[in-house]
Nucleic acid binder design. Structure first.
Length: 299
DNA sequence: AATGAGCCTAGGAGTGGCCC
DNA sequence: GGGCCACTCCTAGGCTCATT
């Protein structure tokens, strides 16, 4: 992606951490010997500090970390522990074995500095997730609030509920349900067939128009009424209600139009986030930036 | 002095429930 | 049905003190 990625640094090799920049940017984490990513993230502080803290929170194989201050840590821990357990169950190499035997499971990370303000960084993160989904056909296992199906997540520290492996009789964690495949990367943002979806005609963002949106979960686009440039991409469990909320905001006194997709009842929460990121990533790819009001508070 | 570790706070985005 | 508000989820950012 034109980024200056560091080499992959194993979590158990802190001496190699000098490869991780002490600057804001984006990072990725995977398990050794496995191309599939566990997560893609960003920080506005020091990548070095962020990754050092993540590594530190995973130092104990017998204790799932809290979900604060690093929300992804419990998920990384769950996959790491599960894979180590599986590897151990497969048996240790015999003394006479050749060198085909895989090494121990360890997490490793790579990072790239990014000289960009928060919207630019978050936009790049969405773009990386979008590209990864296009190429791998699925999302990183720990992104979008996903979790290991056979583990329960730790609460925040102050709530004091430690997570861990589920008992055999307990049902799978819904956050471990499969994600949704990537949208087809076709068309331009705002086109009626963008990303393989059928977008209805733009409508003026008014209370009456929002009221007439069919019930259900889905995705929506907000665009400048004059230029038709998309300024915000969102998802909601009830699109009509969300558009009602947006319609009340000032938007710097600009006139906006909207379009939407109703995907039906939401059974799996992370799938809408995945689709929303596909849209934001595609927008970023074609405009070299996130939509104007994405990742901004002043609405 | 730099780094590590633990803890706390803030805030964006979205959800859900209550009340009129 | 709509306004309002408290809540969750996710993540960034910053402070303090201990250790290197």
């Amino acid at each position: 992606m034109g980024l200056d990625w560091s080499p992959w640094v194993p979590f158990d090799a802190p001496r190699e951490y000098f490869y991780i920049p002490k600057a804001p940017g984006v990072y990725r984490i995977r398990a050794t010997g496995n191309e599939a990513l566990l997560t893609i993230g960003e920080t506005g502080q020091s990548l070095h500090k962020k990754i050092s803290e993540l590594r530190q929170s995973l130092r104990r194989a017998d204790l799932m970390p809290w979900s604060d201050p690093h929300d992804v840590a419990p998920c990384l821990w769950a996959y790491w522990v599960e894979w180590v357990t599986q590897r151990n169950a497969e048996g240790q190499p015999e003394p006479g074995d050749d060198d085909e035997t895989p090494g121990p499971v360890m997490l490793e990370c790579s990072a790239a500095p990014l000289d960009a303000a928060a919207p630019g960084r978050k936009g790049m993160e969405a773009y990386l997730l979008y590209q990864y989904r296009q190429e791998a056909g699925e999302s990183p296992l720990c992104s979008f609030g996903r979790f290991h199906p056979r583990y329960r997540k730790s609460s925040r520290r102050c709530e004091n509920r430690r997570g861990g492996k589920l008992e055999d009789h307990q049902q799978d964690n819904p956050a471990g349900f499969p994600g949704i495949g990537p949208l087809e990367a076709t068309g331009h943002p705002g086109d009626p067939g963008w990303m393989g979806l059928e977008w209805p005609e733009w409508q003026s963002l008014t209370a009456d128009a929002a009221r007439n949106v069919p019930p259900g979960a889905g995705l929506y686009l907000l665009a400048d009424a004059a230029t038709r440039e998309i300024v915000y991409i969102g998802h909601a469990a009830a699109v009509a209600a969300r558009l009602m909320e947006h319609q009340k905001k000032a938007w710097d006194d600009r006139e906006l139009v909207f379009s939407y997709q109703i995907t039906g009842p939401v059974a799996i929460p992370h799938t809408l986030r995945e689709l929303e990121t596909d849209l934001i990533g595609s927008f970023y790819e074609q405009n070299k930036k996130a939509p104007e009001y994405q990742y901004r508070s002043s609405r």
